[in-house]
Design a protein around this nucleic acid. Sequence first.
DNA 1: AAGTTATATCGGTTTTTCCCGATATATAGA
DNA 2: TCTATATATCGGGAAAAACCGATATAACTT
Lengths: 99, 99
Amino acid sequence: MEQVDIFKALSNKTRLQILEWLKDPETSFPEQKANGYANGVCVGQIQAKAGLTQSTVSDYLSVLQRAGFVTSTRMGQWTYYKRNEEAFEHLSTLIKSAL
Amino acid sequence: MEQVDIFKALSNKTRLQILEWLKDPETSFPEQKANGYANGVCVGQIQAKAGLTQSTVSDYLSVLQRAGFVTSTRMGQWTYYKRNEEAFEHLSTLIKSAL
DNA sequence: AAGTTATATCGGTTTTTCCCGATATATAGA
DNA sequence: TCTATATATCGGGAAAAACCGATATAACTT
């Protein structure tokens, strides 16, 4: 994954929003409270909140994952996505040093 | 300037490269040594190094300027661009806090 | 096995970005 | 003023991204 692709992943309002939502899943996705948030939030919840089609949101989550900003866990029929805080730390450092 | 536009400005290989070049103008633009680097580097030098047309490079520099990553100074027929380090600091902080 | 639900992938249309050539503007010098 | 040089802006063709619907895959339920 090249540097420019990291920034491309962040060059979309919806994707930025998803990352912000995942920062505080308890608040952003209360519907999932029963299942907990240990592995993140499932695609359906994110899709509903984003107001885009299922295919688009699935696509966006792949983009974010390829860039390292989220990780996914398959549990039964659901795929849960959660933030990978290391990626943000890393990017923050990179901007200071390499950029 | 919205957050997403900051990242769009960084979503291009040439623009990223220009920012890196401007980090160390003495090394990247030795041709300009006679004139000094106090105000940055003029468009022509950047264009020659980028290997793109004058209009494209001028455009790219505008994009970087609108996003705050560079500032420009007009001196005679030349426009000099240099990095605005504050913008990078700011972005680095933003990624840790807001993103 | 058949039906249901959740997600991923595929093909295509629309929108945006990339990058160009042509032209306009600004400054300097003869 | 006329000419040359440096940069900015404008209009457009080509490439990439956004986003969709349709369909495929995977796992659960009965």
